[in-house]
Write a protein that binds this DNA or RNA. Structure first.
Lengths: 225, 225
DNA sequence: CGCGGCTCTCAAGCTGCTCTCAGCATGCCT
DNA sequence: AGGCATGCTGAGAGCAGCTTGAGAGCCGCG
């Protein structure tokens, strides 16, 4: 089992390396966010232990970036703060587990083992379809390198379509899940909003992620069109 | 994403509804166990937030009943007690996650997101006949590597034929099952549509998946022709 | 209080799907 | 082979369903 430990505090990093090695892990160390990200990309690790407070690039940024790049290596976050916000943020951002400093070494090893057992999570925290990426927590959408700004309604619509990517989703289904008021709305809200969405995520890129299936509904292509 | 919140404390329920709506969820409320169960049954929710201490029917009972009815909607339990027994009970009973009151709103949202992420419903199987593949959920058809675009009627026709692959299906049978209106249609709709279908799934590939059985009907070859 | 942005309604216009009809091709029986 | 029955196909009318633009109401913000 090959681990990467990203931790700027040198003594703690050393201690972890030594301890984990004695548990039988192969352990590499990075001391800042940027080099940690770089190592994570190329290193083919079985798991990563990642401090949140890091120079150059925070642990959050590192996980988020990895997940954007569809790298689902198990990540265990370490944070000095113990606010609830941190935990939530970390998990939202795509980490798999979380420990607050000061942590017990034994607990760390136990959690790591659990992570490795579980393997990479089958479902990432961000939704991906081809070059379309939607981050529910950050409320952000990107196509390729371009960040796309959506209104709340447009975002919900795209999120639901992406969660059911590949399937045809009916208008009624959308009314029920994206608009609270199922049956209340008589008019063609759904059509209108699909139109808005296409103008933002399809037209500028000359590709169609959202397909109309006449008489049935709409389908988001799993390959992003 | 459509959520049901079952919580008897009116102010908390309101607050949750407001907050979750601002996150982009569609939120319904029930104030007791019995009506919550009823809503859960018919509401087609993506997830349910369920208080344990409820009038008329406890949260435990609600989950237990749902699971008995083979309803696997993701459920997050909320409890005022914080003994470990509760958690175990809740999870035993079939809940997917658990929070103790007082809980952090941010954590609730993060856990909900995790639940929704996990709750990917697996798609129903596709129909296969030789190199012909039909996906009812995606409303898509492929022959070998080529994706074929069919109209709604053509799709229904092929789907019915594929479900009865190998059998000879009569015109009357098709009128009844593919065209709602059995007997209404006097003309040769079926022939016409079989024609359309062949032009799309047979002619371009130089093979005949649909065979005419004179005086009887049509048969879809199990080996795709 | 005015402004801008978001949500939703409405109506007009267009696309392309569905079905009919008529004529042609093919198969079957004597 | 001839003649009848059955199935196939091309053309086109009608229309349901989708798209789009314009604009009204509403809310939050300065």
């Amino acid at each position: 089992m090959r681990l990467l430990v990203v931790e700027d505090e040198v003594r703690l990093a050393r201690a972890l390396q030594k301890g984990l090695r004695s548990e039988g892990f192969a352990v590499d160390i990075s001391h800042d966010g940027a080099s940690g990200l770089e190592s994570a990309r190329v290193g083919n690790y079985d798991a990563i232990v990642l401090d949140v407070m890091l120079p150059r690039l925070s642990g959050y940024e590192v996980v988020r970036t990895l997940r954007r790049e569809r790298n689902w290596v198990p990540v265990l976050l370490l944070s000095a703060k113990d606010g609830e916000y941190d935990e939530a943020d970390g998990l939202d951002v795509g980490a798999d587990d979380y420990l607050t400093k000061p942590f017990s070494y034994v607990v760390l090893v136990a959690r790591l083992r659990a992570l490795l057992r579980r393997g990479a999570p089958e479902r990432p925290a961000v939704l991906v379809a081809g070059d379309l990426v939607l981050d529910p927590a950050a409320k952000q959408v990107a196509r390729g390198d371009a960040t796309i700004s959506l209104t709340a309604r447009e975002f919900s619509l795209l999120e639901y379509l992406m969660r059911r990517a590949g399937e045809v989703v009916s208008r009624l289904d959308l009314l029920e899940h994206v608009w609270d008021s199922y049956g209340v709305s008589e008019a063609n809200v759904v059509e209108v909003y699909v139109g808005y969405l296409r103008r933002k995520i399809d037209t500028p890129f000359g590709r169609a992620a959202v397909t109309t299936v006449r008489g049935v509904g709409y389908r988001l292509e799993t390959d992003g069109g």
